[in-house]
């Protein structure tokens, strides 16, 4: 962490201001050193900041065969995801299934759920996509 001269001056001036009458060369030095050490440690990271409703759309399709719904729902149950709606269509050998899933109380992040579902998709030789609900809301609702 590099601090420019300007920033250092600002920190010092603010420290003097806040210390008021207590300001002496020693106390100011102590406070400024503390601030600089602290600022070195704080790495701003908003990765976990997610403000959405927590609903995702899981779309799955491929050749129909036994065990597909079981495979998917098992993983959803295991991660504490709540299925709010299911809809599916079968056209000759092909199926398409769409689920609305609430992941608000899930014990995994969306990325981890996607990774788990990729493994399921590989095993069952089908395709599974998980996308946040908002993208459908924005694209198809005015």
């Amino acid at each position: 962490m590099n601090i420019t001269e300007d920033e250092l001056r600002q920190i010092t001036l603010q420290a003097i201001d806040e210390l008021g009458e207590k300001a002496s060369p020693e106390t100011v030095k102590k406070v400024v050193t503390e601030i600089i050490q602290k600022s070195g440690e704080t790495v701003v990271d908003n990765t976990a900041k997610q403000t959405e409703s927590g609903k995702v759309i899981l779309t799955s399709f491929g050749l129909n065969h036994p065990g597909i719904v079981a495979g998917i729902t098992q993983t959803l149950a295991g991660t504490n995801c709540d299925i709010m709606d299911i809809s599916q269509k079968i056209l000759s050998d092909f199926y398409t299934m769409i689920m609305v899933v609430d992941i608000s109380n899930a014990n995994v992040t969306l990325q981890e759920l996607q990774q788990k579902m990729n493994a399921v998709a590989d095993k069952l030789k089908i395709k599974i996509y998980i996308q946040h609900e908002d993208v459908f809301k924005h694209m198809h609702r005015v």
Binding site: I57, T59, D85, S87, K89, T96, I98, V100, Y129, Q131, E133, V135, F136, M139, H140
Partner: peptide, 12 residues
């Protein structure tokens, strides 16, 4: 279902 089947497939 809050979205039409076709809408979701279109996005995919």
């Amino acid at each position: 279902m809050p979205y039409e089947f076709e809408e979701i497939l279109e996005t995919i």
